[in-house]
């Protein structure tokens, strides 16, 4: 009999169990309302993101998923006339704590954007940018961080011989991976991804998705995506938003195979609207 004959434990939960289960409410969003001026963009959102898991936000355009994501590192502060109610905590601490500088929050919460946005600098300088603005000058530390991040972003082998070349000479997929390397260079705890693959071809998308799969060993990842397939492929949990409300939040399998809300079912089966 072949070795595969040995009866094994149930493999429906395919994800390899990490050494230690993390906090279930690593990021905790509590009764969160958010307004752009008079417009209510998010309404009583309640949602917990477990540590070292991938959570996907899906929903039609304008449903508030990006808004919520951009609240997690307070990128929305750049917009005039915003207001929020409720609270968001990361590892138990409110991100709106007046004692917490928004800059130090952003150093703990890395972000990757929809359009890859490398700086017009060398590949090296792009990766170590976050360290540079933190005031790190030690060349050895920077070199090490650069290599580690690029390796984690699965880009090292492709660029190690041209670190001083302009980052703008890279291909689209490489640029996006560079942006991921840049986002993880200062070892944040959380990685936010705002439609990271929407401008990439399928191969590059596949590489990024594999990368997300590997990065969740170390980072808690929240990803906003328009592609339900992508959400299904990379996430452990999926949240479906519609018109600023969280309609359903469950394991990805549950959401895509047997959602409990009719709206979710309609959306994921393409029968929406």
């Amino acid at each position: 009999m072949p070795a595969t004959m040995n009866p094994t434990t149930s493999r429906i939960q395919v994800r390899p169990a990490t050494e230690k289960e993390g906090r279930q409410d690593y990021i905790s969003i509590r009764d969160f309302n958010f307004y752009y001026g008079a417009k209510k963009a998010l309404e009583s959102i309640k949602l917990d993101v477990p540590e070292r898991r991938v959570v996907a936000f899906i929903g039609p355009s304008g449903c508030g998923k990006s808004t919520l994501l951009r609240n997690l590192n307070r990128m929305n502060d750049l917009v005039d006339g915003i207001r929020h109610e409720g609270d968001i905590t990361i590892n138990g601490r409110s991100i709106y704590d007046p004692g917490l500088e928004v800059i130090s929050l952003r150093r703990r919460v890395g972000m990757v954007f929809q359009k890859s946005n490398p700086f017009p600098k060398s590949i090296y300088e792009n990766v170590v940018y976050a360290l540079r603005v933190m005031g790190v000058r030690d060349r050895a530390i920077l070199d090490e961080a650069c290599e580690t991040s690029l390796r984690k972003a699965a880009l090292w082998d492709e660029v190690k011989d041209r670190l001083q070349d302009s980052a703008l000479g890279l291909s689209g997929g490489q640029m996006q991976r560079l942006c991921i390397a840049r986002a993880i260079a200062n070892r944040p705890e959380i990685l936010l991804m705002d439609e990271p693959c929407s401008a990439l071809d399928p191969i590059a998308t596949g590489k990024i998705e594999e990368l997300i799969h590997e990065l969740k060993e170390q980072f808690t990842i929240v990803i906003v995506t328009h592609s339900m397939q992508q959400a299904a492929r990379v996430s452990d949990r999926t949240a479906f938003f519609y018109l600023g409300k969280l309609i359903e939040y469950d394991t990805t399998e549950k959401i895509f195979m047997n959602p409990s809300q009719a709206q979710t079912e309609a959306y994921i089966s393409g029968r929406f609207g």
Binding site: I103, S104, M111, F113, P118, Y129, A130, V133, C179
Partner: peptide, 19 residues
Amino acid sequence: GMREASLAAGASKWQTIRD
């Protein structure tokens, strides 16, 4: 995007302008 990337990396406004 460039401005946002810099701020998201934890740079201050002045660092973003300068760098």
